[in-house]
């Protein structure tokens, strides 16, 4: 299947000399959900803004749905919807008017039924005649999404869509994202909430200092980089780690009351059985045992730290 978005050697250097994007290469398939993670100022918003046409690239190229974003901007922008990070709305407009305006701006014939359905899907229908200034922050965020969806885009960029919204709205948005994807919409989102990426993304990209330092399938990323640990709470404390356990990646913690064994989930044998046998031979007894897996957040923090 040809990629819906193809980014080749994309770089952006601002007038002051700051390099916001550094030779980004990325290919995104149709109906994929990609989460872009990265610290503040990493270049996530610049990347999105460049693809959407808000910022001019310094070099490289981007195609969306087979069209170049500069030469074929009329086509590429027609298929893209953008929910920006900031709540930038015209305060004095009504919800209905501003969403209808967006549809027209993106070259679509008026379609009141579609706008009505979009507002209903986003629980905005009863607010349609309200001025935007009268809405809460969460409602304004919904309006921004309604505006982005008003022209029926097939590619949707969500720049920190759930920043500052409550848990309920965040879950609503995740459901909406999944529903859009099931309708064939490709979604690229930036987020600071690792759990958001973990929850809804198919692939994770990490951007740091304008470079895409990683792009990987979420499950295999967690498998590849995710460490698993077996934690044993001992009945009696150990003063030192017995020499028989030196071949295991094991640490003695909590004043000798806990053993932590780290193993690789991709290995054929985890070594757990051998460890338990050895402990039995040594007469080391334990009260409890549990396993723990590193989260995407741990992976992200370790990647960003390593890339410094």
């Amino acid at each position: 299947m040809p990629a819906i978005i193809q980014i080749n050697k994309l770089s952006k250097i601002y007038a002051g000399g700051f390099q916001a994007l550094d030779t980004i290469n990325l290919s995104i398939d149709k109906a994929e959900i990609i989460a872009l993670l990265g610290p503040n100022g990493a270049g996530k918003t610049t990347l999105i803004s460049t693809i959407c046409g808000i910022i001019n690239p310094s070099s490289g190229s981007v195609t969306v749905d087979g069209h170049d974003i500069i030469d074929g901007y009329r086509h590429t922008r027609k298929v893209i919807g953008l929910v920006p990070q900031e709540l930038t709305t015209d305060s004095f407009e009504t919800v209905w008017d501003t969403v209808s305006f967006s549809r027209g701006l993106f070259g679509k014939k008026p379609n009141p039924q579609f706008i009505e359905q979009t507002l209903k899907d986003l629980s905005l229908w009863d607010k349609k005649d309200n001025k935007i200034m009268e809405l809460s922050g969460g409602m304004k965020r919904r309006v921004m999404i309604a505006k982005a969806l008003s022209h029926e885009p097939t590619v949707l960029f969500l720049d920190e869509p759930t920043a500052g919204v409550d848990v309920e709205l965040r879950k609503d948005m995740w459901n909406l994202v999944r529903k859009l994807r099931s309708n064939g919409v490709t979604i690229i989102l930036t987020t600071h909430y690792i759990e958001e990426a973990e929850e809804i993304a198919d692939r994770i990209g990490v951007i740091k200092n304008g470079q895409l330092i990683l792009i990987e399938d979420k499950v295999s990323l967690m498998k590849k980089l995710g460490k698993k640990q077996l934690i044993l709470d001992l009945k009696e404390n150990l003063t030192d780690l017995p020499s028989e356990l030196e071949n295991f990646d094991i640490q003695l913690k909590s004043q000798g009351m806990r053993l932590i064994y780290t193993y690789d989930t991709t290995e054929e044998h985890s070594g757990i059985a051998a460890l338990l046998q050895q402990l039995s031979k040594l007469g080391i007894q334990f009260n409890d045992l549990k396993t723990d897996q590193s989260s995407l957040e741990d992976i992200f923090v370790s990647l960003v730290r390593d890339a410094v």
Binding site: G53, I54, Y73, I80, L82, E86, L105, F106, K147
Partner: peptide
């Protein structure tokens, strides 16, 4: 006004 409020993003990203 769109420059001031930031809504210019919509004009710049529209197929126009």
């Amino acid at each position: 006004f769109p420059k001031f409020t930031g809504t210019i993003y919509e004009l710049l990203s529209a197929p126009i």
